[in-house]
C-alpha cells in the first residue's frame, strides 16, 4: 500500500541523517570498544582517520552503488526481486580478480581486473542474449543466470587448484569484504557521470518500469535507453564489486524496502536507496568488525544473514499481494 503523506518529511530527515550518524558510529566503534572520536588520544585519532573513516566511506559508497544498481536492474528486468548480480556481473568480476591473484598479475590493480571482468560478463550476456528474435527480458535474465553459473564453476576450479595460502583471502573476497576497500580518486569521474545521468533519467525509469513497448509509446527510444541503463547499472555494480567483492543482498533488499517507504517514483526512490544503502552497509560493516572482535567477519556474511530472512519475508508479502 502507499504510505500516508504526513511522515514523508520525517522519513527524509531520517534518511539524510542516517549517513553522518552511521559514519560517526563507524568511527567510534572498534576492536578496543566504544570511544567518541573527539575524546581520543593522538594515536587512536590516527587509527580513526587512517583506518576506520576511509573504510566507512568506502562502505558508504559501495552500499549506495549496490542499492542504485539494484533499483536499475529491477526496472530493466521488470522484476522487483532482481538484484545487481543477477546477470553474472559479480561472478565475472570475482573470476578475473582471482585469476589475477593466482597468476601473479601484480602489475594490474585487482579492482581494475574485477571491473574488466564485470564488463566482460555483461558483454557476454548481451551478445548471447541478443542472437535472433526480439529483445526480451526473460532471455537476458536466463542467459545471465547461466553465465553466472559458468563463472561460479571457473571460480571453484581456481579455488580447488590454487595454492592453499591464498585461499582465505580469496574466500573473503568472494563473500564480500571491506577491510581493504578504499575509495580512490579515479572512481569519481565514472561515478559522477553515472549519477548525473541517473538524475536526468529518473522519470524515464518510471516509464520503463511499464515495459519496453510502453516506454517506446511514451517517447523513449526504447532499445537505446535500455542499453544505456544496463550499462550504467553494470558500471555501478562493477565499481562496487571491484572495491569490496560480491556483497550480497544490499542491492536486493534496500531498493525493495525503499519502494515500500517512498513509492516507485524513481525521482524519490533513487536518492532514498542511495542514502539508506550507504548507511546500511556502513552499519553492517561496523558490526562485522566489532561483533567478534578482534576477529573480523566479511561483511557479506552479515548482509546475507540479515538479508535472507528479510528477503523471504518480502517475497512472501509480494506473493500475497498478487
Amino acid at each position: 500500500m502507499i504510505p500516508a503523506k504526513l511522515p514523508r518529511l520525517l522519513l527524509w530527515i531520517v534518511l539524510v541523517l542516517s549517513v553522518p550518524l552511521s559514519l560517526l558510529l563507524a568511527a567510534s566503534a572498534g576492536s578496543t570498544g566504544w570511544h567518541w572520536p573527539w575524546a581520543l588520544d593522538e594515536t587512536m585519532q590516527r587509527v580513526v582517520l587512517e583506518l576506520r573513516l576511509p573504510r566507512a566511506i568506502a562502505a558508504l559508497v559501495v552500499g549506495s552503488l549496490l542499492a542504485l544498481a539494484g533499483c536499475l536492474m529491477q526496472v530493466l528486468l521488470r522484476n522487483p526481486l532482481a538484484d545487481p548480480y543477477v546477470l553474472g556481473l559479480s561472478g565475472g568480476a570475482a573470476a578475473f580478480a582471482l585469476a589475477g591473484m593466482m597468476f601473479g598479475l601484480t602489475f594490474i590493480p585487482v579492482p581494475l581486473l574485477a571491473f574488466c571482468g564485470a564488463l566482460l560478463s555483461l558483454l557476454v550476456v548481451f551478445v548471447l542474449a541478443r542472437g535472433r528474435g526480439p529483445w526480451s527480458t526473460t532471455r537476458i535474465l536466463l542467459t545471465g543466470v547461466v553465465v553466472a553459473a559458468g563463472w561460479g564453476a571457473l571460480i571453484s576450479l581456481m579455488l580447488a587448484t590454487g595454492p592453499d595460502a591464498s585461499l582465505r583471502s580469496m574466500l573473503f573476497w568472494l563473500m564480500g569484504d571491506l577491510s581493504h576497500a578504499r575509495l580512490s580518486a579515479w572512481w569519481l569521474l565514472p561515478l559522477t557521470a553515472g549519477l548525473a545521468l541517473l538524475w536526468l533519467r529518473a522519470r524515464s525509469l518510471n516509464v520503463m518500469s511499464a515495459g519496453a513497448l510502453q516506454a517506446a509509446l511514451l517517447g523513449e527510444s526504447s532499445q537505446a535507453r535500455f542499453w544505456e541503463i544496463y550499462l550504467v547499472a553494470s558500471l555501478l555494480t562493477g565499481l562496487a564489486v571491484s572495491m569490496a567483492g560480491a556483497i550480497g543482498f544490499v542491492g536486493l533488499i534496500i531498493p525493495h524496502l525503499m519502494r515500500l517507504l517512498v513509492g516507485s517514483d524513481h525521482r524519490r526512490l533513487l536518492p532514498a536507496a542511495a542514502l539508506f544503502g550507504g548507511s546500511f552497509l556502513v552499519l553492517a560493516d561496523t558490526l562485522a568488525r566489532t561483533v567478534l572482535a578482534p576477529r573480523q567477519l566479511p561483511v557479506g556474511v552479515l548482509t546475507a544473514l540479515i538479508g535472507v530472512p528479510l528477503f523471504l519475508l518480502l517475497l512472501n508479502r509480494a506473493v500475497r499481494i498478487r
Partner: peptide
C-alpha cells in the same frame, strides 16, 4: 524522434501489466 512521435500519437496496448507499486494517479501521470 520517438519523443516527438509520442507527443502526437499514443497507443493503448492490448495488455498492460503493472509490476511496481504506484498510485493510479501516478500511473496516469506517466
Amino acid at each position: 524522434k520517438r519523443r516527438s512521435v509520442a507527443r502526437r500519437l499514443g497507443m493503448l496496448p492490448q495488455h498492460t501489466r503493472y509490476v511496481f507499486e504506484a498510485s493510479c494517479e501516478q500511473t496516469a501521470l506517466v
